[in-house]
Design a binder for these strands. Structure first.
Ligand SMILES: NC(=O)c1ccc[n+]([C@@H]2O[C@H](COP(=O)([O-])OP(=O)(O)OC[C@H]3O[C@@H](n4cnc5c(N)ncnc54)[C@H](O)[C@@H]3O)[C@@H](O)[C@H]2O)c1
Ligand SMILES: NC(=O)c1ccc[n+]([C@@H]2O[C@H](COP(=O)([O-])OP(=O)(O)OC[C@H]3O[C@@H](n4cnc5c(N)ncnc54)[C@H](O)[C@@H]3O)[C@@H](O)[C@H]2O)c1
Lengths: 214, 214
DNA sequence: CTAACAATGTGATAACTGTCACACAGTCGT
DNA sequence: ACGACTGTGTGACAGTTATCACATTGTTAG
C-alpha cells in the first residue's frame, strides 16, 4: 500500500469507514464494479469527495470504468487496519458495555474481544457469550500485559473512567476508546478517542432549536 | 439570547456540549467563577477557542474576571436548546436501545422519553423503568402524531432503519438520531444525525496502524 | 487501428475553521 | 480616585478541508 506522508483529514477516515460498510453491502456477483457516483449516492457523499479521499492513499480504480467492489473494500480495510485482529477488552459491563460486547460489528472489523472487566462482585466470574470472561478491575494491568491486548474500551461510570484508563495504560495498552463523558488523560504515546453520544443529542437539539427560531 | 446569523461551525456546537458537561461538574459554591483557561484545562480545548466559540452567540463573561459558572451553564443550555423538554421516543428496544432508555443523561439534558417501540411480540406490552411503554411498530405514526413527539432515536437492525424512519416522518417527527450503520433518507425538512460508533472504532484502528507503520 | 466515450485522479481554487495577539473593560489595592 | 492588573472579546492571519474543472487513461464499438 502506498501511503503518501501528507496529513490525512480526520473526516476522510470517517468517510472511508462509511465506504467500507456500503461496499460490503453493495458488492454482488451481478455488480462487481462500482463508480464513485454510485457509491456516493449510497453514502451521500459527492463523487469528487470519494475520489479525493482515495487519492490520498493511491490509485484504486480503472479510468472510464470504476472500482472493483471487492478489491476496493479490501484496500480500504487495509488502509484502516481492520483486515487483521486487534486484541480488545471492554471495561465496565453495564448496559452500554453489554450492548457493545454483543455487537457483531467487532468481529467483522477485526476487533477480537478476549476479556471484559468489572468491579461488581456479582458480575465477576460470569461469562459473556460463552467465551468472554468477566474479571475484576484489579487484574486489568496484568491481563492486558499478559494477553498483549492493544485496544481498551471504557464503559464505566464517569468517576471511574480516569482510574480505568490509568490501569489500561499501566498494562501497556495501545489505544483507548472512551464512552464516559469526560476527557481522560493519557500519555502522548497512547491513541485516545472519546465517543460522545451525548454531544450528538445536544447537536440535534441545537439544530431543532435553530429551525424553530428560524 | 443574541444569535448572530452567521454560520456556526459544527465543531463549535460539539464543544459547547462538552463545556456544559464540565460546567455542571465544576460549578461549586466555593468556585462560582471560572476562566476560559481553567475550563480549557478540563475540556482540553484552548482558552482562545472557548472564547471564540462563545463569541458567536454573545458576551457572557466579565473582563478581568471570567464567567459565572452557573450562569454560563444556563446560557449554553439555552443556546443548545436543552433547557426545556423534548418529547422523545426510542425505536428498537434491543441491547443498545435499552442502554439508551436507562441513560440518565437524557433527563438532565431535557430529552423526555415518553414511549418506545419494538416489533418483537415478547417485548410489546412490557414497560421500561415504570413509565415507558413498549408499543408495536405499527403504532409509530399515530402515537408520534398524537403525543407530538419531536425526536426519534433509531436503534433497530440496519435493514429496518429506513422503514422506521419513514414511519417516524409520517407521524410528523422533527428530528432523528440514527444509530444504525446506514444513511437513512428523510425529507429536507427533517433534521437528521447519524451516530457512527463503528467509524470511531475504525478511526482508532487507523490511528494505531499509522503509528505502527510510522 | 482508431476514434468516441466514460469515469478516474489531481492541481487550482474556494470555503471553512482554528490560532494569535492585543485592545478593551471590569476589579482591586492603595 | 486612580493605576496596575487580569482575563475577555475579536479582527487579522494561518492552516485545513471541500469543491470544481479538466487532463488523463483505459475500454469498446465500428
Ligand atoms: N447507557 C448509555 O446509553 C450511554 C450512552 C453514552 C455514554 N454512556 C456512558 O457510558 C458509561 C456506562 O454507562 P452505562 O449506562 O452502561 O452504566 P451502567 O451503570 O449500566 O454500567 C456501568 C458498569 O461499570 C461497572 N463499574 C463501576 N465501576 C467500575 C470500575 N471501577 N471498574 C470497572 N467497572 C466498573 C459497574 O459495575 C457497571 O457494570 C457511563 O460513563 C455513561 O455516561 C452511556
Ligand atoms: N450494540 C451496539 O453496541 C451497537 C453499536 C453501534 C450501533 N449499533 C446499531 O444499533 C442497532 C441495534 O443494535 P442492537 O445491538 O441493540 O441490536 P439488537 O438486536 O439487540 O436490538 C434490535 C431491536 O430492534 C427490534 N426490532 C427489529 N425490527 C424492528 C422494527 N422493524 N421496528 C422496531 N423494532 C425492531 C428487535 O426486536 C430488537 O429488540 C443496529 O443497527 C446496530 O448496528 C449497535
Amino acid at each position: 500500500m502506498k501511503t503518501k506522508d501528507s496529513k490525512i483529514p480526520e473526516a476522510t477516515i470517517k468517510r472511508l469507514s462509511t465506504y467500507v460498510n456500503y461496499l460490503g453491502r453493495l458488492g454482488t456477483d451481478s455488480n462487481p464494479v462500482i463508480s464513485s457516483e454510485m457509491l456516493g449516492e449510497s453514502c451521500q457523499v459527492s463523487p469528487a469527495q470519494i475520489r479525493k479521499d482515495l487519492s490520498y492513499f493511491g490509485e484504486f480504480g480503472v479510468r472510464g470504468v470504476g472500482y472493483d467492489t471487492k478489491k476496493l473494500e479490501a484496500e480500504i480495510k487495509d488502509i484502516l487496519g481492520i483486515n487483521h485482529s486487534w486484541p480488545t477488552t471492554v471495561v465496565g459491563v453495564g448496559k452500554l458495555g453489554q450492548a457493545l460486547l454483543n455487537f457483531d460489528f467487532f468481529r467483522k472489523h477485526g476487533f477480537r474481544i478476549i476479556v471484559a472487566f468489572d468491579s461488581d462482585p456479582r458480575k465477576i466470574g460470569t461469562k459473556i457469550t460463552d467465551d468472554i470472561a468477566i474479571l475484576p478491575t484489579n487484574d486489568i494491568e496484568n491481563i492486558v500485559n499478559e494477553k498483549k491486548i492493544s485496544i481498551g474500551i471504557i464503559t464505566t461510570p464517569t468517576d471511574w473512567a480516569q482510574d480505568v484508563a490509568d490501569k489500561l495504560v499501566a498494562g501497556g495498552i495501545k489505544g483507548i476508546l472512551n464512552f464516559a463523558p469526560i476527557k481522560v488523560k493519557v500519555p502522548e504515546s497512547i491513541t485516545l478517542r472519546n465517543v460522545s453520544i451525548t454531544s450528538e443529542l445536544d447537536n440535534l437539539a441545537y439544530l431543532l432549536t435553530q429551525k424553530k427560531r428560524q
